[in-house]
Design a binder for these strands. Structure first.
Length: 320
DNA sequence: AACCGGCTCAACCGCGAACCT
DNA sequence: AAGGTTCGCGGTTGAGCCGGT
């Protein structure tokens, strides 16, 4: 359909915005409100396309935006929502007041994704990464076109939305199979529940804690526990909705050991440190069936099921 | 001091949906 | 109904920053 590329017009400026341009846009939008974006650049006296103006406003200039690092609770909310929604950044952002989809997308791609990979979790599916089999000795061919290791993993279920957008498959109208999965308490390691939008329960994200809680070092685990207590009470209804068993996050090392089938005495000193999280994550993955059993005990699955979240361990991943 | 590589994030691009004529 | 316009979304890019050598 004869659509004009909006930014190809001659004479329109591209690239970083200057303070002067910002000021023009802000003062225009504050005095006139957001109406037809098409008219905004002209009326505001800007040599920008409407798209550029809208983006600058929504992602940067809007007065209700929070700036700076995401709070821990926000990060957890993003994790929760991404597990349910996939890369629907605008939907995720709608649950985080003052945050933009762009900001969340960037944060996901630069931080959370890495952390999950370090934990052996596929950031796309929130499932454990499959074992990468050692290349056969006589067949160490590169995959075609130099695909990344990720591209060489076993094919996942169809991830693309029928519309062609590269989003994680989501059951807009849950089919029989997905309904069964959601009703089965045994699921979890195989499937991340893809929920219908109106089923999504988001733990309240009330970070307006003092900004200093933003740094990992200054945040004792207990401070997050408060948040996760709140969220787990909220996630109770979530679990009711999805009919998942509610498992408690262990209060202490004894419980962690219990879950992992270990005695406290079995633990080496390092394990008794706050790196427990790491220890309960799967080492090089065994065959999938065994692996799944093992995962029933691992911390991330506990997190997926209960919403409880070991913030300290999570923060440590940042430092690795 | 200079160079290099990795990282971050603001901005851009292209597409589809919704709306309008 | 068909074609055009506007808006919003998600993926990608690249300039600038920063730490390491």
């Amino acid at each position: 359909m004869g659509r004009q590329p909006c930014c190809d017009k001659v004479g329109l400026k591209k690239g970083p915005w200057t303070a002067e341009e910002d000021q023009k846009l802000i003062s225009f939008l504050l005095s006139n409100g957001q109406c037809c974006w098409r008219a905004v650049p002209k009326l505001a006296g800007l040599l920008r396309c409407e798209k550029s103006c809208r983006l600058r406003w929504t992602n940067y200039l809007r007065p209700d935006l929070k700036r700076g690092l995401l709070f821990e609770a926000e990060e957890k909310t993003i994790l929760d929502l991404h597990a349910q929604l996939g890369n629907r950044w605008s939907r995720i952002a709608s649950h985080l007041p003052g945050r933009t989809d762009n900001e969340i997308k960037n944060h996901w791609n630069t931080r959370i994704k890495k952390k999950l990979k370090k934990m052996g979790i596929d950031p796309l599916t929130h499932k454990p990464l499959p074992a990468v089999p050692p290349p056969p000795q006589h067949e160490q061919h590169l995959s075609p076109a130099g695909e990344s290791p990720e591209a060489q993993l076993p094919a996942l279920p169809e991830q693309r939305h029928p519309g062609g957008k590269n989003t994680v498959a989501m059951a807009e109208k849950p089919d029989e199979e997905s309904l069964l999965l959601r009703k089965s308490p045994a699921f979890c390691t195989n499937e991340v529940p893809m929920l219908h939008p109106d089923e999504i329960m988001v733990p309240p994200c009330d970070p307006p804690a003092p900004p200093q809680t933003c740094t990992a070092a200054s945040t004792p685990t207990t401070s997050y526990s408060t948040v996760s207590t709140t969220s787990s009470s909220a996630s109770t209804s979530c679990d009711e909705d999805t009919l998942l068993p509610i498992l408690e996050w262990p209060d202490d090392v004894d419980n962690m050991c219990l879950i992992a089938g270990l005695g406290v005495n079995d633990m080496i000193p390092e394990m008794q440190s706050s790196l427990l999280w790491d220890y309960f994550l799967p080492p090089p993955p065994p065959p999938l069936a065994v692996y799944e059993d093992h995962l029933l005990n691992n911390a991330y699955v506990q997190y997926q099921r209960s919403g409880a979240f070991d913030q300290e361990a999570w923060n440590k991943l940042e430092l690795l």
